[in-house]
Design a protein around this nucleic acid. Structure first.
Length: 810
DNA sequence: CTTCCGTATGTTTTT
DNA sequence: CATACGGAAG
């Protein structure tokens, strides 16, 4: 997001901007004409089509600065919505930077959901809620649905709660309340019970005084629709509306915006949406590209501004991306260009299999390292997270620092959710879902039977579970063991609650975790996980210090799920999915796994046909456009899928690339198999030409042919149906694999030794027999030490070769 | 209540 | 292959 080409305004310029005079156009300096138009056209609806790397965020933030300095609105009169907290934070920082500290932060700059909560808390009673309502996350949601499903005596195995949760989310994304769900769709779940369950669920939420994420938007819509005065108040309030990533909005968000942006007194609202239809990659979670495609119909007289001047990538990279995305239909059409140099052509490398792919990428990264370039400028962008593993394994072996972006998020981790449940109970004894979660964690002998008893009583009396427990422990209805345990727990909660005012909340949190036995539970757990979990708990307590009080902290958490910033490695290659790479940029981007079935993903094609394919292609476009200087695409001829090796065929996206702007890279250890047998075994996509008849001579095509020949030969070699046997050869480990590859390519490939980490020559700090701990593999015993390279027998993960800097003495 | 075994199931992710 | 979850046995 940081553009070297886009300089920061000088101090003087910022001071002038803060003064807000006409001469203050300092913040406008350095904008290109289109950006400037996007900033200055503040009246009426505006759609800014901002291609990748064209300064989208800069336009948004400068536009806000412009509105403020023109005195058209106070900060509190500007509504600016984003999808992620990260984007919101970044915008806040940049606006503050532009405008100076004089202006208080913008109260209405936030995510759709955060904004929804803010509005909803003020008018909760109008939609049947109390202002202190809790926000359920996916986990709570599923547990609640499970209960409802059980209550209806539906076979939970055939109709899992997560499926229903998915359906409900989907309906909510489309703003479908139970009465609006199309009959056909409603019948799809549990023989027509889906709708009933949806309605039950909504009713139950009201009883619990809770909402889920979808409701944050839907209930706000309902609030606006049913209360003209409230709607009018907000319409008047928000003189300017700005929307980031408009291509990602779903129906509910669209309706939400429309309500707020309705014309008033005949004048169109000042709404500005920024987005890029070519980067719409979230259709599967409800995003409607159509929203952006339809913008000028929704907002007649809209000004459409295209930002096509790219400040990020070199010429060849842009050309490759442009050619690729041009294969999509139904786009608004933009062509990125740059005045910068052509740079290196994106490379295309064919590798034998995914192991070689990882090895090859690893070597390129070492090369970059040797050249003294930071690994922070590099990233590996994969389609599916299972691809990450092979890279991780390889990098651990060679001792290359890496970091995985994404994965389980901090606040979604089991231990964090447990800890939060404790805190929720302390803060609000009526939080049934939280209570249920931790009533028997750690184990205190309160099983299903006890819980059922509590439930029955709670329902009969119409009180929260904690209250029911309070009553029941005073009776003889419970077994003494359970009764005592429960009694102790309740006493604890009462004591903790009594101390909310008495001590800082982070200390209280620590106290709760310790006294409840929760910390101890993980201390007893001697796996790698246990240690990490204790770390996370520590991190949680530490992060609480930044908040004023417990309630404020809990509200924050409900809406924020950002990855923890703990233990950052200073210079490392990032591994992440293409989806999570959107919005980021790197000098060098590795794009592995460009194979049919994986990318485009088979499921995407099966389930969404042409639309699915186009979304996958946009994903490829996003991938390439992340690169500033180098994009390196790989495809493997063999990949292990569901445990067995399958031969694969290069992605059709490879053929969508322009040969003039792509360089074939001779992969490591794979060159020269072009001369392999030309057998024609079986049909493949490459036997039929219809789809890409125009690309016969593209590098991708040629590679594909070579690759196919290889695959065919392989099939012959192993007796075709023997992919199983083939797999087992590989499964025997690296030694077997090496021999195999050398045999096969016949060219005396020198891969021996490549598989082994560089030995530093210095004796290791560790000796055979030492007990060590590894972040990924947990505890283990050193079997052998060769320089800085150790062979360790891990308790859980088995024998692995690791570099000693990755372990610590245990 | 815990442990272990068998079976199903293998995209993408935010709030 | 490898993991995750649910059910049955201890």
């Amino acid at each position: 997001m940081t553009d070297p080409a886009q300089r920061q305004p000088s101090l003087a310029e910022r001071a002038m901007a803060a003064r807000g005079s006409q001469a203050a156009a300092g913040y406008l300096a350095g904008l290109n004409p289109e950006q400037r138009a996007a900033v200055e056209t503040i009246d009426g609806p505006v759609l800014v089509l901002a291609g990748a790397g064209t300064g989208k965020t800069r336009v948004l933030t400068t536009r806000i600065a412009h509105i403020l300095s023109q005195r058209r609105a106070f900060p509190s009169e500007i509504l600016a919505v984003t999808f992620t907290n990260k984007a919101a934070r970044e915008m806040k920082e940049r606006v503050a930077h532009l405008v100076g500290e004089a202006v208080e932060g913008m109260p209405w700059l936030g995510t759709f959901h955060a904004t929804g909560v803010k509005i909803l808390r003020r008018h909760a009673e109008l939609v049947g809620l109390k202002s202190g309502f809790t926000i359920l996350d996916t986990d709570d949601q599923i547990r609640l649905l499970k209960q409802l499903i059980q209550a209806e005596n539906i076979d939970e195995k055939r109709w899992p709660a997560r499926v229903l949760a998915g359906a409900i989310d989907g309906w909510k994304n489309r703003a479908l309340t139970p009465d609006k769900v199309p009959a056909g769709e409603a019948a799809a779940y549990a023989n027509g019970m889906g709708l009933r369950l949806y309605a039950d669920y909504q009713a139950r939420l009201k009883v619990l005084n809770a909402v889920d994420f979808g409701d944050l938007l839907l209930e706000t819509i309902r609030l606006f629709r049913e209360n003209d005065d409230v709607l009018a108040e907000y319409q008047r309030k928000f003189k300017f509306i700005l929307v980031d990533e408009y291509q990602d909005t779903n129906v509910a968000q669209y309706l939400w915006l429309r309500l707020l942006a309705q014309r008033q007194e005949g004048r169109p609202q000042n709404i500005c949406c920024v987005g890029d239809d070519d980067q719409s990659i979230y259709g599967w979670r409800g995003a409607e590209v159509d929203n952006i495609l339809r913008f000028d119909k929704d907002f007649p007289g809209a000004t459409v501004i295209r930002l096509e001047r790219n400040y990020r990538s070199t010429g060849h990279i842009l050309a490759a991306a442009a050619h690729l995305i041009a294969h999509n239909e139904g786009r608004l059409g933009k062509t990125l260009f740059t005045d910068g140099e052509d740079g290196d052509k994106p490379t295309l490398t064919s590798v034998w299999d995914s192991e070689e792919e990882a090895r090859s990428v690893g070597e390129e990264l070492e090369q970059i390292q040797r050249q003294g370039q930071p690994l922070n400028g590099t990233a590996i962008l994969v389609r599916a997270s299972f691809q990450m593993r092979e890279f991780e394994d390889r990098f651990i072996t060679i001792g290359l620092p890496y970091r995985v972006i994404g994965g389980p998020r901090f606040y979604e981790r089991l231990e964090i959710r447990d800890a939060l449940a404790y805190l929720r109970c302390v803060a609000q004894g009526s939080d049934d879902l939280a209570f249920e979660r931790i009533v028997n964690t750690p184990k205190r002998g309160l099983g299903d039977a006890t819980l059922q008893q509590l439930h029955d009583h709670a329902r009969a009396q119409g009180v929260p579970l904690m209250q029911a427990a309070r009553v029941l422990v005073e009776t003889e209805e419970m077994k003494p063991k359970a009764r005592n345990a429960l009694k102790g727990l309740i006493e604890n909660f009462d004591r903790w609650a009594g101390q909310i005012e008495a001590m800082p909340h982070s200390e209280l949190a620590q106290l709760v975790l310790d006294e409840s036995g929760y910390t101890e539970m993980w201390q007893k757990d001697k796996t790698a996980e246990g240690a990490g979990r204790l770390e996370n708990l520590k991190e949680l307590v530490r992060s609480m210090e930044e908040f004023e009080n417990l309630a404020g902290f809990l509200e924050h958490i409900a809406l924020v799920t950002e990855a923890r910033g703990e233990g950052e490695i200073e210079d490392a290659v990032s591994i992440m999915t293409l989806h999570s790479a959107k919005g980021l940029e790197f000098d060098t981007v590795f794009l592995p796994g460009w194979e049919e079935g994986l990318f485009p993903h088979q499921r995407s094609l099966d389930e969404n046909g042409r639309a699915g394919l186009e979304e996958e292609r946009r994903l490829a476009y996003v991938g390439i456009t992340r690169a500033r200087r180098r994009a390196k695409i790989y495809f493997a001829g063999n990949r292990r899928i569901h445990g067995l090796w399958q031969s694969t065929v290069p992605s059709r996206f490879v053929n969508d690339l322009p040969s003039d702007h792509v360089e074939i890279s001779e992969g490591l250890g794979t060159s020269g198999y072009g001369g392999m047998g030309r057998g024609n075994f079986g049909q493949s996509r490459f036997d039929k030409v219809e789809t890409f008849s125009s690309t016969y001579s593209t590098p991708g095509w040629q590679r594909a042919q070579a690759q196919k020949a290889l695959a065919d030969a392989q099939a012959r070699f192993t007796g075709r149906s023997g992919s199983q046997a083939f797999g087992s050869t590989f499964a025997e480990g690296r030694g077997g694999f090496q021999g195999r590859l050398t045999d096969r390519s016949g060219g005396g490939r020198t891969i021996d030794g490549e598989l082994i980490a560089k030995s530093s020559g210095e004796p290791s700090r560790y000796q055979p027999g030492d007990r060590v701990f590894h972040l990924k593999f947990g505890y283990g015993d050193v079997v052998a030490a060769d320089g800085n390279k150790l062979t360790v027998q891990f308790d859980k993960a088995g024998e692995k070769k690791v570099v000693d800097s990755f372990v610590q003495a245990a």
